[in-house]
Write a protein that binds this DNA or RNA. Structure first.
Lengths: 110, 110
DNA sequence: CCGTATCCTGCATGATACTG
DNA sequence: CAGTATCATGCAGGATACGG
């Protein structure tokens, strides 16, 4: 979700943040990682709709922005854990507010 | 930005909010409307990168979510003003936090 | 001035299969 | 288990032209 061809104006920081957390699944990923560290397979399990390919990509992008930390254990079978970096944790309020707003304003329940 | 085929889980409200404000320009639009009411042409002017087509579409989507209000003046030449609804204003904190986070964490300056 | 109508394109996301 | 490699696709967003 990179919009490199941006005519910058006063609203830019807002859009910049959108680019970081604006992927289709990034909000959910961050929301889960807020709670605890997760292994790759666990994330896949709690987000049944996402494919392996896409999950990997979104995690890599979050990693590139220094939002999530990727810890690889040199074991067999492999084990990879994802957690929030300090910068990632600084998004907590935003994520939680988005959750609350969504819960209050959208009829996602059923 | 509708993802109708969603496997819902705990993170859903977050994603729901993302769908509402997650368009490429919606963040900026909302950020500007936070400040004051704008006419269509004014919005276009302060967001030089967006096309008329896309601006119209994003505004219509925000309108559909009851985030912005569209007021048409029966004049010649036509005059259309966009403002935030109450629901739109309730997003203010989120938008401002996104702005602050972006300003603090991204090197968009210059 | 504020749109809508067409047409087009890139890229985010997905499906599927294979590997260290 | 946690990925890459390929290939496919839908749709958000853009270019352009026209209309009330």
């Amino acid at each position: 979700m990179l919009h490199s061809t941006y005519k910058c104006n006063a609203g830019c920081p807002v859009e910049g943040t959108m680019e970081v957390i604006g992927g289709k699944w990034k909000g959910v990923i961050l929301y889960h990682l807020l709670e605890k560290t997760y292994r790759f397979g666990e994330l896949k399990k709690i987000m049944p709709g996402i494919t392996q390919h896409t999950l990997t990509k979104q995690l890599r992008e979050l990693e590139a922005y220094d939002i999530v930390n990727r810890k690889v254990y040199a074991e067999v079978p492999p084990k990879v854990e994802y957690s929030l970096t300090e910068r990632g944790k600084s998004l907590e309020k935003i994520i939680l507010m988005m959750r609350d707003w969504g819960a209050a304003n959208l009829s996602l329940a059923k």
